[in-house]
């Protein structure tokens, strides 16, 4: 089997498209590269969605944390403490075990034009359950970073906005939020990298893999088991992660430039 054929058959194997049976004997380097790469789809999916949702949720949690209202502040504080204070590994485990205990119900969700049946059972599947855990995790970490940045927004900026007669919402949207992001961006970049790497834990010992569809580490593990040689698949997955981490840093760097575009260069 040539390498192009392998790409066609296994390129999307991780999401259930292509050849059903994984290679079992005479495993080639190409098959390892393709399947592990196919698994990266899951890692990217988890990272992108968790980061995207988490980013906005974190803004809310950070505001609640900074609020003088105890009803808002205390839950936010507790949430951040519990999530930041416990290993993600254990969060995955506890979440999975509790999701399994939830009675299997179906909710009908009407979106006007289509009816979707939302099943609580989906929570036990990685695509939703693990995403929820990762989302909560990044929300807490990001909220803590944003909260620190929020306190560091220069007082003068806020007073200037008041003097201009901005509404509270406008003031937040135009003055506080951009400053907060600018101050938080370096730490946020680190958090994004950590979260991306954390996606490798999803199938590792909590959420089961269905139909042999798993993330990059799942396939790397599969090959390490089949070839009994860890020195090929693990460096391959390492290489993939390095490449995507560099891309992630570059993308966040572009955003950083934009956030700082009004700041005169030193």
């Amino acid at each position: 089997m040539s390498c192009t054929e392998t790409i066609v058959e296994y390129g999307l194997r991780a999401i259930g498209i292509g050849e059903r049976l994984l290679p079992k004997a005479d495993i080639t380097l190409c098959e390892q590269f393709v399947l592990i790469g196919s698994g990266m789809i899951w890692n990217l999916y988890f990272a992108l969605f968790a980061l995207a949702f988490g980013f906005f949720a974190a803004t809310g949690v950070a505001l609640a944390r900074a609020s003088s209202q105890p009803l808002l502040q205390l839950p936010a504080k507790a949430f951040i403490f519990v999530i930041r204070g416990s290993p993600l590994f254990i969060q995955f485990f506890i979440a999975y075990e509790s999701f399994v205990l939830i009675p299997k119900l179906g909710f009908d969700l009407s979106l006007g034009f289509v009816d979707i049946t939302v099943e609580t059972r989906w929570l036990t599947k990685a695509w939703l359950g693990a995403l929820v855990v990762l989302f909560l995790n990044t929300t807490a970490y990001t909220a803590q970073i944003f909260h620190g940045a929020l306190l560091a927004v220069p007082k003068g900026d806020i007073e200037a906005a008041d003097a201009l007669g901005m509404t509270p919402f406008r003031k937040f949207r135009r003055v506080v939020w951009p400053s907060m992001l600018r101050l938080a961006w370096a730490s946020y970049t680190n958090e994004a990298i950590f979260l991306f790497h954390a996606t490798a834990l999803v199938f590792f010992s909590s959420f089961p893999a269905w139909r042999q569809e798993g993330d990059a580490l799942y396939y790397a593990n599969y090959f390490a088991d089949k070839t009994f040689n860890p020195f090929v698949p693990y460096p391959i997955i390492g290489l993939y992660f390095v490449i995507f981490t560099i891309v992630l840093i570059a993308v966040l760097g572009v955003v950083n430039k934009r956030l700082n575009r009004h700041v005169p260069p030193e």
């Binding site: 390490a224 020195f231 693990y234």
Partner: peptide, 18 residues
């Protein structure tokens, strides 16, 4: 940059045997 680019779990899985 290498170590930061690779998830710790992946690193542990082969680096220690090495």
């Amino acid at each position: 940059s290498m170590v930061r680019g690779i998830p710790d779990i992946v690193f542990f899985l082969f680096a220690l045997i090495a």
